[in-house]
């Protein structure tokens, strides 16, 4: 079955793109199309007009003084292959390499992964622990929004019609001398490739020379209506060593950060247990360094 779209516009500038989006209420931006095309075909989303972002120069990874800016049209493959990202945001590089399979990674974009609004978006937990923000442009101007405020519910985001994510900003945060950083992304799925996360975790720990946490940030996917920061678990761990007692407290605390349901991929009970397992493994790794 074909995709029910009336027109496709290929603007050459961001201004043209925003105008094309503003003209029709049923206009939608499209980049890789790996989610959108499927949703259009299934009737889960509708678009009378598609605005192709391919010619806007929105792809690219750029380092500024205190941040890395990732263009919204940067592909998962480019993110996963980027030395800059691998060095400063290894969880994001790892997550990008686990979206779908390689052919998907060569089309799917970071902006699309966010704008799609899935609770299972693999790049969301790494961006949450990076405390990243998105730049959003529209005919009315641009605004900046924290990734933590972008997701509203399954398939729903704070983006309004006519708005376009143009880039994602990841603030650089160098550890103090003597501190070490452990950052990981893990996802659980029944098969090795091409699987939507049943539970995913991104964790970033900065550990002082005495073994206590200088910082610990945790975020989960697929365990709530939106990707979530596990602030309760973070508080339970603050300043402590990741020993057995702390890990157990964190496993308990994280249950209050998540709100999984039973769905076709797994029951809520499994997601609660798997979230605890992923967290425990991350903390053990942090302890080992």
């Amino acid at each position: 079955m074909d995709v029910p779209v009336q027109e496709v516009i290929r603007p050459a500038t961001i201004a043209e793109a925003l105008a094309a989006l503003a003209e029709r209420e049923d206009a939608r931006p499209i980049a890789g199309g790996t989610d959108l095309m499927v949703q259009l075909r299934d009737g889960r989303r509708r678009a009378g007009r598609l605005v192709d972002l391919g010619r806007l120069g929105l792809a690219g990874i750029r380092r500024t003084r205190d941040a890395i800016e990732v263009g919204a049209a940067t592909t998962m493959d480019a993110i996963a292959a980027s030395a800059e990202i691998k060095r400063s945001f290894p969880a994001l590089a790892s997550a990008a390499r686990q979206v779908g399979a390689w052919p998907i990674q060569c089309r799917a974009t970071l902006g699309g992964n966010l704008a799609n609004g899935s609770p299972a978006a693999d790049t969301a937990p790494p961006l949450l622990i990076a405390e990243a923000s998105v730049t959003i442009a529209s005919a009315a101007g641009t605004r900046r929004l924290r990734v933590a405020d972008l997701f509203l519910g399954p398939g729903r985001t704070a983006l309004t019609p006519g708005e376009l994510v143009t880039s994602v900003r990841l603030p650089l945060d160098e550890p103090a001398p003597g501190e070490r950083v452990v950052e990981r992304f893990t996802k659980v799925g029944p098969r090795r490739e091409q699987v939507i996360s049943v539970v995913s975790l991104a964790g970033r720990a900065v550990i002082r020379p005495d073994g206590t946490f200088a910082l610990v940030r945790l975020a989960f996917g697929s365990v709530a209506p939106v990707p979530v920061r596990a602030l309760t678990a973070e508080r339970a761990l603050a300043g402590r060593r990741p020993d057995a007692a702390a890990r157990r407290d964190a496993a308990r605390a994280v249950q209050d950060d998540i709100a999984p349901i039973d769905d076709v991929r797994a029951p809520a009970r499994y997601r609660r247990i798997a979230a605890a397992v992923l967290l425990d493994r991350f903390l053990q790794e942090a302890a080992r360094g």
Partner: peptide, 14 residues
């Protein structure tokens, strides 16, 4: 028991 309960559900689709 878990205190954090939201009424919305996780959608089956992506």
């Amino acid at each position: 028991e878990h205190e954090h309960v939201r009424s919305e559900t996780v959608a089956p689709g992506r």
